[in-house]
Amino acid sequence: MSQKSFVWFCLLPLVVVTTAFFLLPMGRLVVAGAEGPHGLAGYLAILTEPRYRATLINTVLLAAATTIVTLIVATIAGMFLQRHRFPGRSVLIAMLTFPLAFPGVVVGFMIILLAGRQGLIGDLSNRLLGEKLVFAYSIYGLFLGYLYFSIPRVILTIMAAVQKLDVSLEEAARSLGAGPWAVQRDVVLPALAPAFVASGAIAFATAMGAFGTAFTLATNIDVLPMLIYTEFTLAANFATSAALSVGLGLITWLILALARSFSGSAVAAAG
């Protein structure tokens, strides 16, 4: 067997799996999206139909907010954890990364325990303010759940990136007169940019498509995965749910591509 045909032979399982479980269903999904009463215009409905459009905007905003807040929290925590040695550090890291294994349902459950009708925050605010604070079943509860979901994923990437930072760069900046904030702004953050893009993309994509948490919290939160679910199972509207699915994938991909090219120059320079 020649070298070339050997390589092709090795690639065969990949080709089969990709075709069977990715290309065919994707193709079917794309076709199904155009099989509704409006044909290909069914895709346009994602943007023209007010309810769909509002949901889309909602989802993108939620995912963007989750990504930004996750990055801020995870960067500060990751930097601190990587740079300091203190008793209980490994326990803290374990706790922060523990939710990695949780499915969305469990995360939703925890949000209800925290901010639901019988939740901790409700009890506390009831005692202090005489008013029960409940936000588990809204988009705020979902936001909190996504944060909880994303932080472990991002924090590990950031910690690895911080470990690879060249400390002498920070010392050089300080020797030139840069205070702590200037060092962060001019040296540390630019050097971490590739890690921000990589882990931010994961956080964003996860938040765009996450379903379990939303489903656990309430069935009427306006996010795209929930909309697809209701269209599919409750309304049996296959064409629309297929069109929405394809739209969800495309839009997520598009935003990530934009973010990557936007930060591309910064990443290349820092690389």
Binding site: S168, A172, A269
Partner: peptide, 16 residues
């Protein structure tokens, strides 16, 4: 301290 320092690795800022 107003000192100038040259590091063994030079520590030049790659983003500038």
């Amino acid at each position: 301290r107003n000192i100038g320092m040259v590091f063994q690795s030079y520590a030049l800022f790659p983003n500038m």
